[in-house]
Design a protein around this nucleic acid. Structure first.
Length: 477
RNA sequence: GGCCCGUUCGUCUAACGGUUAGGACGCAAGAUUCUCAAUCUUGUAAUAGGGGUUCGAUUCCCCUACGGGCUACCA
């Protein structure tokens, strides 16, 4: 598609934190804007007085910023636009594209229930569609409450969706829906249109749950004489149970991912693959690369199931591709006090040794503990396997002695020393490597033993070996 | 109930109407290695069902089934 400088928007309601579905919608809008050199705008749909909370607005901003989805211009707040909406409602009334409906809520509810028990379906019957002038002014002077309904024209309405293709609806299936409530406030299908128009939105990219709203909104555009934007509806994101992703499915808030140590680039990478086909076998993309290759018509029609395992894998790839400095900064951003007593240089070397083994910033922190603290316990299985008896102890003791006499403490030096001991004793190096590793880290996993030792330094290594010697073998002599 | 949309390995996804239906995650096995991880190799596993159209359907059409969305004085 060769849209020139499109303007798109993300329009969340601040009734909760930014969740994965919203983040994906925001991301695709952002990618579309960036790809076509357009603008990505924000609109806060805060007209739901009951559920909207200001703190959520801030959280949404924070989440978007964290994801790297910067927006253009100042966000638009619907709560500040009441006058504009009233103006448009009056125009709609004046042009007779809409009308006042004096039917009471109770009356309508009754009719709906009746209809539903009989045929199952209900649409407003148009009772007030053509009331006489006299009746209307009579109701108005007596302050009879009313809503405003759009006069839905009878026609076959078609629109083109960039993802779903052509969609056709018979508007006879749509009743004269309400555009203004009895308190004068406009409803969603009206404000969305007014705002999108006023914001100069050229492409409305939103969730698939809005497909059925689209014909209604198109009728509003027409009634208002506004040009109709283009539409693209994104398929839903499901949980593993094939139901719309929600809190039930565990972590769904963007902030939870941040707090769990995922890199923003990993999340956007994963989210982009949820419903979009990059048209290459490549799977790991930076946000910038995504923007370059994003094509809205390569978006899938069917809903995608969220798969945490794949996200985790992608996260690991991003960690691996990150520079140690970025990872260090990332950890400090999460956790400003992280190992504050250590030299930055040392921390960075620790990260260097571990980044291949971690899938998130949190894991990176978790598996680095032994670089800073002597082991509090030793992996039991490994202890039994690699330090069965006193012969191991004597080997380790011998290694300690060699280390004591070692000149300069280097990775190569400690390795050579170990291999010499092993050779002298006629055993494989592994026989000694395992117990030494256990002594130093307490666990049977980790980077190259000698790299570890090089970084830990002579003093720490010898202290830990001594500690282990006092403790092992666990039983017998 | 009505309207709209969808359906390829467990999951994310490829395949001008002609492929041994491909890749990725996961899982399993092997290689490698001082362990773990990473990496590499191999394996596992899919066109929802039924009708058409066609020399030939994953691909086009219809029906059924299943799933989802909407059907508010929510957004």
């Amino acid at each position: 598609m060769n849209s020139k400088n499109p303007r798109v928007r993300f329009a969340p309601s601040p009734t909760g934190e930014l969740h994965l579905g919203g983040a994906r919608t925001a991301l695709f809008n952002w990618l579309f804007a960036r790809h076509h050199d357009g603008q990505f705008l924000l609109r806060i749909e805060d007209t739901d007085q009951v559920r909207s909370r200001e703190e959520f607005t801030q959280q949404i901003f924070d989440s978007l910023s964290w994801l790297g989805l910067a927006w253009d211009e100042e966000p638009l707040y619907q709560s500040k636009r009441g006058d504009r909406y009233s103006e448009m409602i009056n125009i709609l009334l004046a042009t007779e594209d809409s009308y006042r409906c004096f039917c009471s809520k109770e009356e309508l509810t009754r009719k709906r229930e009746e209809a539903q028990s009989e045929s199952g379906g209900y649409m407003y019957d148009g009772t007030c569609r053509s009331l006489s002038e006299e009746l209307i002014s009579e109701k108005l002077t007596s302050n009879h409450p009313f809503v405003v309904r759009l006069k839905v024209p009878r026609t076959i309405l078609k629109f083109r969706d960039h993802i779903y293709g052509e969609i056709q609806v018979n508007t006879e299936e749509i009743d004269d829906f309400i555009v203004a409530r009895s308190d004068g406030n406009p409803t969603y299908n009206l404000v969305a249109v007014i705002d999108d128009h006023d914001m100069g939105i050229t492409h409305v990219i939103r969730g698939e749950d809005h497909v059925s709203n689209t014909p209604k909104q198109i009728m509003v555009y027409e009634a208002l004489g506004f040009p109709i934007p283009e539409f693209a509806h994104l398929p839903m994101i499901f949980g593993p149970d094939k139901r719309r992703l929600s809190k039930r499915h565990g972590a769904t808030g963007v902030q939870e991912y941040r707090d769990n140590g995922y890199l923003p680039g990993a999340l956007t990478n994963y989210l982009s693959l949820l419903g979009w086909n990059p048209d290459t076998e490549k799977e790991i993309f930076s946000l910038h690369e995504l923007a370059q290759s994003f094509q809205i018509n390569q978006v899938q029609k069917k809903p995608a199931v969220y798969d945490e395992k794949k996200l985790h894998w992608i996260s690991g790839q991003h960690i691996f591709n990150s520079t140690v400095n970025d990872l260090f900064e990332g950890i400090r951003k999460m956790n400003p006090d992280w190992r504050g007593e250590e030299e930055d240089e040392f921390l960075i070397e620790v990260i260097e040794l571990l980044k291949l083994r971690a899938k998130s910033l949190t894991e990176l922190q978790d598996i680095s503990e032994y670089f800073f603290e002597d082991p509090k316990s030793y992996d039991e299985k490994s202890s039994r396997k690699h330090w069965k008896d006193n012969t191991v102890s004597s080997l380790v003791r011998q290694y300690c002695e060699t280390l004591n006499t070692l000149g300069e403490w280097t990775e190569d030096g400690v390795e050579q020393a170990l291999r010499n001991v092993a050779e002298d004793e006629g055993i494989s190096a592994g026989k000694l490597i395992h117990p030494v590793r256990l002594s130093l880290s307490g666990i049977p996993a980790g980077p190259s033993l000698f790299a570890m030792m090089g970084l830990l330094g002579r003093e720490t290594c010898l202290r830990r070996l001594e500690l282990a010697l006092q403790r092992f073998p666990l039983q017998g002599t």
